[in-house]
Nucleic acid binder design. Structure first.
Length: 429
RNA sequence: GGAGAAGUCGCCUAGCCUGGUCGAGGGCGCGCGACUGGAAAUCGCGUAAACCCCAAAAGGGUUUCGAGGGUUCGAAUCCCUCCUUCUCCGCCA
């Protein structure tokens, strides 16, 4: 959500930004909100005047009552009653307008960073940099489910029976590998100075409303029946939620946090949920990074964050690249974002394994995340990034560390989490 | 799950029964100043946020006493709902 003052003072900046994002249908909203804002402030000013009159007279009534001057008191009461109608209608008008304005402000996109490439949709996202050689071995790489099954590491049939499509049982060394990747990611981030968190896995509707749009909520969040609770779709939800209406001291910044959680997503209408495997699923686990910082530091943190993910994947011998989101593909709340994509030697292409976002002050404005400064308060900047999110990440891991006989190499950093193993062997039948 | 008690301005606390002089007293902390050679102590002053009006500054105003609603001319104070914390009982990894 952008600052309405920017829209009042420099509507052209906002219009230009909307055009860059190819959302021309939203252009009329700029004038619409300026008009509503004017109307809102007019009725607010009038209502505040009436309230101040009422307060003044009410004080007088108290004074008359104390004197026992009933007649004067009754006369004053009548005076207040006379303006009650106007005040009431103005108040409700004020509320209605404020609500309307907020609704529009929520869909007016955040001002994107000048460095963001202009493009219409995801086909125009821009590759920034490759890390590691995208290597294709001279033997055939099986589909990830087949790799896992050969290692006796997955049971999709049982999962369909107990929970339906989009769920899975991982077992044996594959399950252990899954946990190992997360444990390693946890320690990897702690070593880089982040504070480890285990957050609540369910949050109240009030928090859900704050951290996502209604459409997202409908398509993503599982609701607990009979409770005001939702299963989180990512730990960002609970981690950012904890800062709602916070006033942070400058000395507490930056907050550099890394959180682990299972993630639950309905994936309504999402492409690929019906596909067999663990690429798009209703339940996965994720080690996440969250940064709350001063405005001048957010660009720096953005680069630190995505590089962490690249370093993590490179330490596991997985080639990756960064793909920058172009203006048209960038979510409305974001200033800048990029995906970290892992190499798939089977498909001979990269696929998304993580996403790094700088939200500027937009999220903070919406949620009231403020910093107490020397000369008054100001809004914080917020960022988030995926460190690793298995089991999707296992697809890249298995394909890139597969030997021709079907066994899996365990890169050095992971071995201590795998009981010292350097290879996962194919079990004898 | 049951029974009680409580949530006030950075922290602690007064006010709630008996609604008006309470945006709110006191203490601590913090800031500035006086005193001092310097400091401690002491004394004095100050000490929230969001928003609106005003070209700006000065100034004025509205809202906020856990959250939301209600009663009233007027609510920290009365009523309802919810959230949170503490104590006791029960249950359970």
């Amino acid at each position: 959500m952008i600052d309405i003052k920017l829209l009042r003072n420099d509507p052209d900046i906002v219009r230009e930004n909307i055009k860059k994002k190819f959302q021309d249908d939203k252009l009329p909203l700029v004038d619409k909100v300026i008009e509503l804002d004017k109307e809102y402030r007019d009725s607010k000013t009038r209502a505040e005047y009436l309230r101040s009159q009422r307060n003044k007279i009410s004080k007088q009534i108290g004074f008359f009552m104390a004197q026992g001057n009933k007649e004067e008191a009754e006369a004053a009461k009548a005076e207040v009653k006379a303006m009650q109608d106007e005040l009431e209608s103005l108040s409700s008008k004020e509320d209605t307008l404020a609500e309307e304005i907020r609704k529009i402000m929520l869909v007016i996109p955040n001002i994107i960073d000048p460095s963001v490439p202009v493009g219409k949709d995801d086909s125009e996202n821009v590759e920034i940099e490759k890390f590691g050689e995208p290597f294709v071995p001279d033997f055939e790489i099986p589909y990830h489910v087949d790799i896992m099954e050969k290692l006796n590491g997955i049971d999709l049939d049982s999962a369909r029976k107990t929970s339906g499509n989009g769920f899975y049982y991982l077992k044996g060394d594959i399950a252990r590998l899954h946990s190992a990747c997360l444990s390693y990611a946890r320690d990897f981030m702690i070593d880089r100075g982040f504070t480890y968190y285990i957050p609540p896995y369910m949050i109240r509707s009030g928090v859900v409303d704050g951290v996502m749009s209604f459409a997202e909520m409908e398509n993503m969040m599982y609701k607990i029946e009979g409770e005001d609770l939702y299963l989180i779709g990512t730990s960002e939800h609970s981690m950012i939620g904890k800062f709602i209406d916070a006033q942070l001291d400058e000395s507490e910044l930056p907050q550099t946090l890394t959180s682990y959680s299972p993630c639950f997503r309905k994936e309504v209408g999402a492409h690929g949920i019906e596909e067999r495997g663990v690429y798009r699923i209703h339940q996965f686990e994720k080690q996440e990074m969250i940064v709350v910082c001063k405005p001048e530091d957010s660009k720096k943190w953005y680069d630190i964050l995505w590089k962490n993910t690249v370093d993590y994947f490179r330490s596991l011998d997985i080639p990756v690249r960064t793909l920058e989101c172009c203006s048209g593909d960038l979510a409305d709340l974001k200033v800048k974002s990029c995906d970290v994509e892992a190499w798939s030697p089977r498909q001979k292409k990269y696929f998304e394994v993580g996403s790094c976002s700088n939200l500027g002050d937009a999220q903070a404005r919406r949620l009231g995340i403020r910093i107490k400064g020397e000369n008054g308060n100001y809004l914080a900047h917020t960022l988030n990034n995926t460190c690793v999110a298995p089991p999707r990440m296992l697809i890249a891991f298995l394909e890139n560390n597969l030997n021709e006989d079907g066994s899996i190499r365990i890169p050095e950093p992971l071995r201590m989490y795998m009981g010292g193993k350097s290879v996962i062997e194919v079990p004898a039948k």
